[in-house]
Nucleic acid binder design. Structure first.
Lengths: 210, 210
DNA sequence: ATCTGTGAAGCACTTCACAGCG
DNA sequence: CGCTGTGAAGTGCTTCACAGAT
């Protein structure tokens, strides 16, 4: 069965909410309640889950722990993923310092930059390598995900290199609409784009009453 | 006429590409070529633009400068937008230091934090204020957009405060599915969510041939 | 000859509504 | 009796295909 891409995008959201419920000590949750927490309709949650199996109990709901484990397994969150960062400027440094990846099983195992000033620098527990050596380094050991934090001008080049080395998932912080071959997945993190679509509504909407 | 939300989300993409073309000195572009650059079908570009007017010339295409100006006006990119940042931890500092907002007309005019250690610190050209004073500060002068970079636990609270003060657009970096009333627009920047949906494909797809 | 603008057709996703099970 | 799982209906978005403008 072909699973709609939007469904895949929502699963991590469900997993996160279930993790919270689990920490709160909740044993069971209904699609109704989960939906209320996430701003999603109960029918949508049930339909989404139904693509993967039958995890609920009629009349009761879902066992939090059980559903969480299932989702983790479906998404592959039950293992460690190895990432490389390309671009160690301001943004790249912030990404290296971000504490949110590791607890979720995402580890940055190498960082690359083009500037001679940055190459060789110690950043946390790794040393910045020359981007020239990207392809040889990637052929050494397995890397699952590439994070691109270089300027727009060189981003497509870097992405091409990553793809050439067999990287099939890319998180792109550069403000470009990168082209990747079929089979490679790329997600854009682009706050400016987000802001620019919100201003459309700001121009128009009736100001909220004071 | 009611404009599909996805269309609004694509317009900034078009504007960005047109800006690049303009800098390259291009006068005219077809939906075909613009689409090729962005990975969007030409028909989609034409349909999207048709919601707002008739900007092209048959047999020729679109005048780059003209269409760019139109899109800027539609999106409200022809003015300055005032933003406040809430949360000046690691992430908040990175956001304050990000040079990508200002050139696009987005200016952070105030920063707030809850920690006594951070309040009062000079960050660039502004002094971090106490989040306690958020509501009074916002009632002083106009703020268009709130940027939330606080921990998950306090994010909903902060968002409620912003909304209460009349902020109708929020950029949320906290890993929660925040609830906002109708009429308030919120966009999530959540790299972990992006990674977690990509791993689904990594688990399954056939590895690229060497 | 080329490329837009757009109804109409097609496709994808969401919601409904209810049978069936605990 | 509550809540899941799911076909069917409904909605919204994308693509087609072509008339019309230059």
């Amino acid at each position: 069965m072909e699973i709609p891409p939007v469904v895949i995008d929502r699963l991590p959201l469900y997993a996160r909410a279930l993790d919270m419920l689990d920490r709160e000590g909740r044993q069971v949750v209904s699609s109704q309640e989960l939906g209320a927490r996430l701003g999603v309709t109960p029918a949508q949650i049930r339909k989404d889950l139904s693509y993967f199996g039958r995890f609920g109990k009629q009349g009761r709901g879902y066992t939090v722990r059980r559903l969480l484990d299932e989702l983790r397994q479906i998404l592959g969150l039950d293992r460690q993923w190895r990432m490389v960062l390309v671009g160690v400027g301001r943004l790249g440094r912030a990404i290296l310092g971000y504490e949110g990846f590791a607890p979720q099983g995402f580890r940055i195992v190498d960082a690359f930059d083009a500037s001679p000033k940055t190459v060789g620098q110690q950043m946390g527990n790794l040393v910045v390598k020359d981007v020239e050596d990207l392809e040889s380094a990637l052929s050494q050991d397995r890397v699952d995900i590439g994070i691109v934090a270089v300027p727009a001008e060189t981003a497509q080049q870097v992405i091409d290199s990553l793809v050439k080395c067999g990287v099939r998932s890319i998180l792109n912080y550069a403000p470009i609409a990168a082209q990747v071959p079929r089979g490679v997945h790329i997600k854009r993190i682009d706050p400016v784009l987000a802001l620019q679509s919100m201003t459309y509504h700001l121009k128009r909407d009736v100001p909220a009453a004071k």
